[in-house]
Design a protein around this nucleic acid. Structure first.
Lengths: 76, 76
DNA sequence: CAAATTTATTCCCGATCGGGAATTTTTACT
DNA sequence: AGTAAAAATTCCCGATCGGGAATAAATTTG
């Protein structure tokens, strides 16, 4: 289940609309530019991670990152 | 609790080491370049989201994105 | 339906990402 | 301690990100 930029784009757009926020407002409140927001919501894979994280936070979208659990097999 | 690029960097680096994988190997298996991996593990906020997602997936790091819950107040 | 609003595209352009190689520095191993 | 391995830096350079404005297109509103 890896996330793709397109999926993130969809979540961002949907959340933004649900909050009744325009792309322009989101750009302002997240400290980015309109250009970036449009690209992000288009699912562009080259958007900068730092800005993506800021936008997610601005929209109240929570992120959880879970490393794999370590299982050591002494297969001897 | 927003994630920062630095936090992601830390998780990536820690996971990679736990898996006993070198940066070079990770670059190869994730289809990126050594340069990118080093930048990512340095917490550079300008790394491309698409590549970040691929690396996370390659390392088996799971991501969860949770939009805010919608609560409609008819405050009338 | 027309007007207003929102979104998307285009343009300009400075800054820089990132692939890949070479080199240097740091870390790990014996 | 010395060596090998890993990581980081530097370099080159083509490609392009993204801010911001203007414009076009699409969508929403009344």
């Amino acid at each position: 289940m890896p996330y793709t930029p397109e999926q993130i784009a969809h979540i961002v757009k949907k959340t933004r609309k649900q909050l009744g926020v325009t792309q322009k407002d989101l750009a302002l409140t997240s400290g980015t530019g309109l250009r970036f927001i449009i690209d992000l919501e288009k699912g562009k894979p080259t958007c900068q991670i730092g800005k993506v994280l800021v936008v997610l936070h601005t929209l109240g979208i929570k992120l959880e990152i879970m490393p794999p659990t370590q299982e050591k097999y002494d297969g001897s």
